[in-house]
Write a protein that binds this DNA or RNA. Structure first.
Lengths: 193, 193
DNA sequence: GACAAAATAGACAGACCGGTCTAGTTAGTG
DNA sequence: CACTAACTAGACCGGTCTGTCTATTTTGTC
């Protein structure tokens, strides 16, 4: 069944996020899904190939999740970004601070392992940064967000800070760093002074 | 010789940064230093214990490196922070984009592995954030940095963004993200508008 | 129902993992 | 010099890693 392949990728995404790529063995994935090894190597040429599939899956999942929030016309652009912080903090706490941003953790770990994996993650990172920039631009047009800074630059700063904030929150086992960051970013985005 | 212990820690710091904790085996460290296994287990109770020693070493190294820049009275506070970005980008490029911030990578990876390691990294992260905040405060007092934002909050934003920027630079195999970030942060810090 | 292709099943291989153990060497101290 | 503690040395252990291999079952198509 084609479903098997997808099951493996989903389990891989979950385990890679929680225990990292190098910390997760093929057998862990097989154990979690109760799929035999023969199937795994039928669908994937090896662990790296599998890793690439997981990255693609995560890239699309993150993109879709952010799109759902950042393009939600029922909220003002600034509110959308604030909601992003809330949801992210909730997700992190729900994973008992084991997760974080799938793309961030993968970027950190995989960039040095394989050129193919590095490129895939890099593209995904830039896509999300672009999504954020579009929302900032929309907020500037509607007067929701200050025009004092260039949208692309502001998005870059906030996107990077978000990644750093997730690391800090994970290290602190607390959502406080993300709540602080939300407040600081909100202030940063507010028009005037 | 006491030197042996220090050699192991230095090699561990280098390898953990480049290939991560989980990606580095005891034998890799022994091979790099040509120290036999008996010595390793004479000095350290196990890999986790060794990891803690490496974290302590890196924490102090980063603290000292940042202190040397951030407390350099021959430069204005803002210039010190800009220099920080330059030096960081140089270091990353020099490691062929394999490194990054020792504390950031350790935080990402070790938080989920061991409570002791997590706490050690978390403390180190907060120390550096505090160093940055002190420099921002000094800049505000001297009129070098805008007083529109609270020093601690600004330092938090910039510190997180720095961590995120390193991830982005690593994924992109380019210092451009860090150069962009330097410009954006400078603008953020400049008084008035 | 026949047949080929796709997928499942898991035993097995060789390398490597962290860690143990015993023996031998070096260094410090009276 | 004698004695002890610190350190070096590396063979070895059980377990786990990714990946291979052969055999079998399921599925799609005529």
């Amino acid at each position: 069944m084609r479903e098997t392949k997808h099951e493996l990728i989903k389990a891989g995404a979950d385990l890679f996020l929680r225990r990292s790529y190098q910390g997760t063995g093929i057998n862990d994935i097989l154990g979690a899904t109760r799929i035999p090894k023969g199937s795994f190597y039928h669908f994937f040429a090896g662990k790296e190939d599998f890793g690439l599939a997981v990255i693609d899956y995560q890239a699309e999942a993150v993109r879709a999740r952010w799109a759902a929030l950042l393009e939600d016309a029922s909220l003002s652009p600034l509110r959308r970004i604030q909601t992003l912080f809330d949801r992210g903090a909730e997700r992190l706490a729900a994973s008992d601070f084991a997760g974080g941003c799938p793309l961030g953790t993968m970027a950190q770990e995989m960039s040095g392992l394989s050129e193919r994996l590095r490129q895939a993650v890099n593209t995904a990172l830039q896509t999300v940064e672009g999504q954020l920039a579009a929302c900032v631009r929309e907020g500037q047009e509607s007067g929701d967000i200050t025009k004092d800074v260039e949208a692309a630059a502001a998005a870059q700063l906030v996107w990077y800070a978000w990644q750093g904030g997730l690391i800090a929150a994970k290290a602190a086992r607390s959502t406080v760093p993300l709540e602080d960051l939300k407040r600081i970013v909100t202030e940063y985005f507010l028009p005037d002074a």
